[in-house]
Every structure is written in structure tokens, then in C-alpha cells.
């Protein structure tokens, strides 16, 4: 079976004023949402209000780095950043994030240069099979931005508890997050000093 690809229109993001009623009395009205995904402005037409952000990313935009684990908000494999905050994309209906900035695992690296959190996961062996890794990394990026862990391994474990690793690579994951926090603090200091 051929994979159907959707060609996305190359139009810049504009603030789309959407009427308050998009699906009215069961009559399908096409819904256009605009999102900035990994820096790219996208306008997307949805034919169905049931599409989650996770399915939109994976099945419509071919951004399959974001994984579907439980699809119920319990495993964290689908973690992405919406306006800089980590959330479970499987429990987020796509239409509710109209206008948002979404960052997925594909948006972290700069060319061939890994994001510091990605590099830390490699350095610390923070994975085995790798399936949960994109979610772990996005969650760690969110955690660092939240600034509540303060380099304390107990706090890191607590604040990463929404990401399950079936292989049990938690030791490496915790170390990787701690290394990334340390790197981030150093970078911030250098930036402040400059």
C-alpha cells in the first residue's frame, strides 16, 4: 500500500481567525490551524477534530521521532514542547494548540551538531532500545527550562517520572540529565559573563 503524502502549502504562518464553531451540528467544516513546528510555520487543514497533536506530527507531518507508546498519557514517549513547555502530545487535540510553537526531537540538533541534552544521553548511555529516548530527551529539555531540579538526582528522578523506560536505563538517564543541567549552567554563566 502506498503511503499517502500530504503536500504542505508553503505559506507563511498568519494568525488565522477561526470561527467559534468548526464542527457544527455534525456537519464537517474544514478546520485550518497554524502552527510553528521546529521553527517552520505551517498551516494545516484538519478534516476531523479528533486528531491528536501526536497523530498530526507522525501521520500528517512525517515527524515520526515523537513516539506513540501508550497513547494514554502514561508513558511519556510522546513528549514534545508546546510554547516551551513539555506536555503529552497524545492527550492534546491538535485544534487546541492552534497558534502554538511546537518543538519535537527533530528540532533540537543544529545541523550535525547535537543538542547538549542529546549529547549527554549518548555520553551517559541514557538508553538501550531507544524507543522512549525522544520523549526522555524532550522531557529533559523541558525539565531544564523549568529550573526546579537544581542538580539534585532525587529531584531529577522525581521530575522525570512521567517518562517510562521499559529497558530500565534510568541510571544513565538520570546521569545524562544531571550532566545536561551542569552544561546548561556553565553555558548560562559564560553567556552572562560575556
Amino acid at each position: 500500500m502506498a503511503i499517502q503524502k500530504f503536500k504542505l502549502p508553503d505559506i507563511p504562518s498568519i494568525a488565522v481567525q477561526i470561527s467559534t464553531s468548526l464542527f457544527l451540528n455534525g456537519v464537517r467544516m474544514s478546520l485550518s490551524i497554524s502552527l510553528t513546528i521546529n521553527g517552520d510555520a505551517r498551516t494545516i487543514v484538519l478534516e476531523d477534530p479528533r486528531v491528536t497533536l501526536l497523530d498530526l506530527l507522525r501521520e500528517r507531518l512525517q515527524l515520526t521521532g515523537t513516539k506513540k507508546g501508550c497513547d494514554r498519557g502514561q508513558c511519556g514517549a510522546c513528549t514534545v514542547l508546546v510554547d516551551g513547555r513539555r506536555i503529552n502530545s497524545c492527550l492534546t487535540l491538535a485544534m487546541t494548540v492552534d497558534g502554538a510553537h511546537v518543538t519535537t526531537i527533530e528540532g533540537l540538533a543544529t545541523g550535525d551538531e547535537l543538542h547538549p541534552v542529546q549529547a549527554a544521553f549518548l555520553e551517559c548511555d541514557g538508553l538501550q532500545c531507544g524507543y522512549c529516548t525522544p520523549g526522555q530527551i524532550m522531557s529533559a529539555v523541558g525539565l531544564i527550562a523549568e529550573g526546579q531540579a537544581a542538580g539534585d538526582p532525587e529531584r531529577v528522578r522525581e521530575l522525570m517520572s512521567g517518562n517510562i523506560c521499559r529497558c530500565g536505563a534510568y541510571k544513565g538517564i538520570t546521569e545524562a540529565v544531571l550532566v545536561a543541567i551542569e552544561k546548561d549552567a556553565t553555558t548560562s554563566k559564560e553567556r552572562d559573563a560575556a
Binding site: I18, T20, S21, L22, F23, L24, N25, G26, L31, D48, P49, R50, L93, M95, T96
Partner: peptide, 25 residues
């Protein structure tokens, strides 16, 4: 399948939410 309504005011949410089968998201 459901109707999707985006409320732009509390009054609009209350009016839409009062309809049979409506749920607030």
C-alpha cells in the same frame, strides 16, 4: 465524532456548554 466549539467568552462557553451532550474541554 463530536462538534468542536471554541469559546471566546465565558458567556459563550456557558451557552455552548448547556446544550445536551456538551462537555467542557
Amino acid at each position: 465524532l463530536f462538534d468542536y466549539v471554541r469559546a471566546s467568552s465565558v458567556d459563550e462557553a456557558v451557552a455552548a456548554g448547556a446544550k445536551p451532550g456538551a462537555r467542557i474541554l
